[in-house]
Structure formats: C-alpha cells, structure tokens
C-alpha cells in the first residue's frame, strides 16, 4: 500500500492546482470529487502495516461514498436545477489563481522542511498535497462569484485538512473522523439549501449582489 503514497500525493497536488485553473463549473465539481476519491485512497495508503485495519477501511469507504460520490452528485444536481451558467466566474483571473496555488505549494514545501518531528516519518509530499488543497480552497472561496463555487472551495479546504490528519489515524479509533465527516456532510447540505434560497430570492447566486449589510 505504501508504494502508492507518493504517486497519490503528486496526483493530489496536480488536482489542487487544476481546481484553481478550470473554467467550467462542471469540471470544478468533478475535480473536487476526484480530490475526494484520492483522499479516500490516501487514507488507505497511509495506514500502517501491510494491510489496513478494519476501521481504516470503514473510514476510507465513508470518505469515498461522501466526498467522491455524494457531494459531486449533489452539487451537479444543484447546478442543473438552478440552470447555472457554465463558467466559474472568478473575481481574479485564472492565471492569478494558479499563481496563488503555486505560491501555496512553495510555502508548504518550505513549511514541511521546517516542521519536522523527531521519530515521526510523514510522507515528504504530505505537506504540499494537504496545504495546496487548503490554500487553494481558501483562494476559491474568496475569489469566485458564485455561491456554489464557494461551497466547492470549502470542500477543497476541508479535504486538505482531512488529508493532513490522515496519518494520525494510525493511533486510535476513527469515530472522531466519522463524526467530523458527518458534520461536513450536514454543512454541505445546509449550504446547498441556502444556495437554492439565494437563487430564488436574488435570481442569481452571485455573492457580489450581497451588499445591503454594511456599516
């Protein structure tokens, strides 16, 4: 299993950068799903020992079911029912977004080399893979006009954090991670409901229209 860790991390970094540069909403959602699938596989690959223990299998299955299947399906359905325009509609250009992602990559490589713990062997590319997802999600969250893209950004952020925590699964049970997953599941559904409401009230899900509350 461990042999797959490095290729998975490289793929994750590429997907994270891809998320920042795709122009079509549909691809944005698809890539977030791929990110979730890679996360599920990474949980298995990072598990200690030759064969992952049952609780790691359950968690990986839950991650795959929720992040790789349920969320993309839910977001695609939202996109269809709201008849959204096909494009991501960023505030800042795609080039600049990608540049932000690359900056995050460099920063995380530097951070990973600084924060070493004696005796703890984290895969060398874990930091870049996790933190490009985190910062990339954050960039999407603040630089995209559509409320739905913000949800995808939140998901990418959360995927990054989850990946960063994946090696800690080696010591202990997974009930906490499952609870976190459940919380995120509910959060995305609540956000989805609010996105529907925003569309019905404003006839658009452009958060740039949110300008009535200020001092």
């Amino acid at each position: 299993m461990h042999a797959f860790v490095e290729p998975l991390m490289v793929l994750l970094v590429l997907v994270n950068l891809g998320l920042l540069s795709v122009r079509r909403m549909a691809w944005c959602i698809r890539l977030a799903g791929v990110q979730g699938a890679l996360l599920g596989l990474a949980i298995l690959a990072l598990a200690p020992g030759a064969e992952p223990e049952p609780h790691v299998w359950y968690l990986a299955a839950a991650v795959l079911a929720i992040k790789a299947l349920a969320f993309p399906m839910f977001l695609r359905r939202t996109m269809r029912t709201l008849h959204l325009r096909a494009w991501v509609e960023p505030y800042i250009g795609y080039g600049l977004s990608l540049l932000a992602g690359l900056a995050a990559l460099l920063f995380s490589l530097w951070l990973g080399s600084r924060l070493a713990i004696p005796g703890l062997h984290l895969p060398p590319l874990l930091f870049p893979a996790a933190f490009t997802a985190f910062f990339g999600g954050l960039t999407m969250l603040v630089s995209r006009k559509k409320a739905l893209t913000q949800v995808v950004g939140f998901l990418a952020m959360e995927n990054g954090i989850f990946l960063f925590g994946a090696p800690t699964l080696a010591w202990g049970s997974t009930w906490m991670e499952l609870a976190v997953l459940l919380d995120v599941l509910v959060a995305v559904f609540v956000m989805g409901i609010v996105v529907h409401r925003i569309d019905r009230t404003f006839d658009s899900i452009d958060v740039g229209l949110f300008c009535s509350l200020r001092d």
Binding site: L141, A147, Q150, F154, A187, V190, M191, V194, R197, I198, T201, F202, V207, F210, S212, L213
Partner: peptide, 10 residues
C-alpha cells in the same frame, strides 16, 4: 437575513 446567513455559514 439571507445575506447574513450566508456570511455566517461561510
């Protein structure tokens, strides 16, 4: 209130 809810959630 919708605007406030969205900001709060995000």
């Amino acid at each position: 209130s919708l605007e406030a809810t969205w900001k709060y959630l995000i």
